[in-house]
């Protein structure tokens, strides 16, 4: 069975709301809190209920036509590559430090989006990162820890 965009979203939120409601019941309260009219659990429970009701309504009333949205035909490859690059950047910042990881991030980013000329890659990324780094550390006096491989 294929689902319309609306129903996929609604199902997603139905699951989110149920899980959220379950997690809300796990919130640990302090003794005596339960006497208050509003505890730390109250709003989460209300929200979970609203989420469940709204997603059910959307599932029932939503557009049932499956439109050929061409999601598959979208330009997925570079976006996935850029997402992975972002994750890599998150890891590498701690290990390689700002200068190296940012330069790598930019060069790889340019490359992913189709810039192939090595001259351009280097001539844009390296000076840009250096100026950015200089501005941060020297002008704004922001401390950027060196990468762990350099003992930072």
């Amino acid at each position: 069975m294929t689902l319309s965009k609306e129903r996929i979203g609604a199902l997603f939120f139905l699951v989110v709301s149920i899980v959220y409601g379950y997690l809300a019941s796990e919130i640990k309260l302090y003794p005596g809190d339960e006497l208050d009219p509003m505890t730390a659990q109250t709003l989460p429970f209300v929200l979970s209920g609203m989420g469940i009701v709204l997603s059910l309504v959307l599932i029932i009333s939503g557009d049932h036509r499956v439109s050929d949205s061409g999601i598959v035909r979208l330009n997925w490859k570079p976006v996935i590559a850029l997402m992975l690059l972002t994750l890599f950047y998150g890891f590498s910042l701690d290990w390689l430090g700002f200068l190296i990881s940012t330069t790598v991030f930019l060069i790889a980013g340019f490359r992913i989006l189709g810039e192939k000329r090595i001259k351009v890659l280097l001539l844009v990324a390296v000076p840009f990162v250096f100026i950015f780094w200089f501005g941060l550390t020297q002008l704004l006096d922001i401390y950027l820890a060196p990468g762990r491989i350099f003992g930072g």
Binding site: I27, D33, L58
Partner: peptide
């Protein structure tokens, strides 16, 4: 055709706002 979706997104935003320490009771949530 967007009203329900927008309402759901609002509720989702409210849900995200409850993550962290509850400001009134100090209880940790999510």
């Amino acid at each position: 055709g967007q009203v329900l979706k927008a309402l759901i997104m609002t509720v989702f935003g409210l849900m995200l706002s409850t993550v962290g320490t509850d400001r009134a009771t100090g209880v940790e949530r999510f």
